[in-house]
Design a protein around this nucleic acid. Structure first.
Lengths: 187, 187
DNA sequence: GTGATTATTTATCATTTGTTAAAGGAATTC
DNA sequence: GAATTCCTTTAACAAATGATAAATAATCAC
């Protein structure tokens, strides 16, 4: 679990008993490429941390598969819209590269908020940071061309090379044909 | 301040002494159309609640004025990316219709988080909700045409009629000329 | 009110992205 | 390893949006 607590450490230094309480909510999951980590239709009650591998959140819009986001080594991934509203999620989490994951039981986590204000604060800070990232992503979508967004994604992480282009296209908000065209001109 | 505490009530029932502590951070502001509520370049240390009026957050991108969001009666407005990171904001808040505002001192608010866990929780819930709204907005931007987004905005609130079209255009991520064209076909 | 400024629309042409269809490659199954 | 399926590219045309310029319309300052 050291990777996870190193991650937490970047947001907030936790006391030992807080860490202990947190560790009890965590379990290790090993999952293979193309498997489903979380299916459609259930309320999200787990927050995941990727020790290794790649995952994506996706949903169907008018019958087509849309990737909402990717997660890589050292990232947190959760279907926030369900986690925070308690409503069933219309999204699923799929594994794109064999992954070692730590699953955090969110139901129990939220209960700990009452007894461990540090834990409530930790996750407040984590999600505040994610919120800021999301605001910045809107700017990227609205004011950059598809080509710029593709090049920017490539720049952020080389792991992207391992992701099927159709998922990258839907993540960028364009068709796969359009992405293919962009790749041809960029080369 | 009743409007503000009614708003808080929708997220969390606060105890009387918590309310009292919160009330001490709040001050009333009356501000006129076209005035600047918060300028560029300073770190955001205030969260605003609109009792009446309209406001927008905007910034300059390659020399053009871009509206990030609007706020109407009963909304909270803050430059979150600065509030949460402590970095100077590249954004400003402008008043679009004469407004009655409650200003919440965020510096003092964050200090109260230690003594009043209820307050930390209240604002956690408020911003979690805003985060979910932002995630949904991304979907709107990526998978709806400019025309659909414009009609959707009109549907959400009639107050939009009072906002200059150039601000609506940049909010929608299109040029004003393009918005004008859309309005012509929609009529 | 009048003139000046600002906001909005219209028109034209260029560019980007979408749609559909077809073909070539890569990976998987039996 | 042959067949099948899935992934990616290419091509041709359609639709949406951008850029620029000019014409109206609305608003503001005096």
């Amino acid at each position: 679990m050291t990777e996870l607590f190193d991650y937490f450490d970047k947001f907030l230094k936790l006391s030992d008993n807080t860490k202990k309480a947190l560790a009890e909510l965590c379990s290790n999951v090993t999952i293979k490429k193309n498997d489903t980590l979380q299916p459609f239709g259930h309320t999200c009650k787990t927050i995941y941390f990727l020790k290794s591998g790649i995952a994506r959140i996706y949903y169907y819009k008018d019958g087509t598969d849309i990737t909402e986001c990717f997660a890589f080594e050292g990232n947190i991934i959760a279907r926030v819209e369900s986690l925070f509203t308690g409503k069933p999620s219309q999204k699923a989490i799929q594994i794109l590269e064999n992954a070692e994951i730590i699953a955090i039981n969110a139901t129990q986590l939220f209960k700990l908020y009452d007894t461990y204000p540090q834990i409530e604060r930790l996750f407040r800070l984590i999600f505040e940071s994610a919120y800021v990232d999301t605001l910045n992503r809107i700017e990227g979508i609205q004011f950059h061309s598809a080509e710029e967004r593709y090049l920017d994604l490539l720049k952020r992480t080389e792991i992207v090379q391992k992701i099927p282009l159709k998922h990258i296209a839907s993540y960028l908000g364009i068709t796969q044909v359009s992405l293919s065209r962009i790749r041809a001109t960029v080369k």
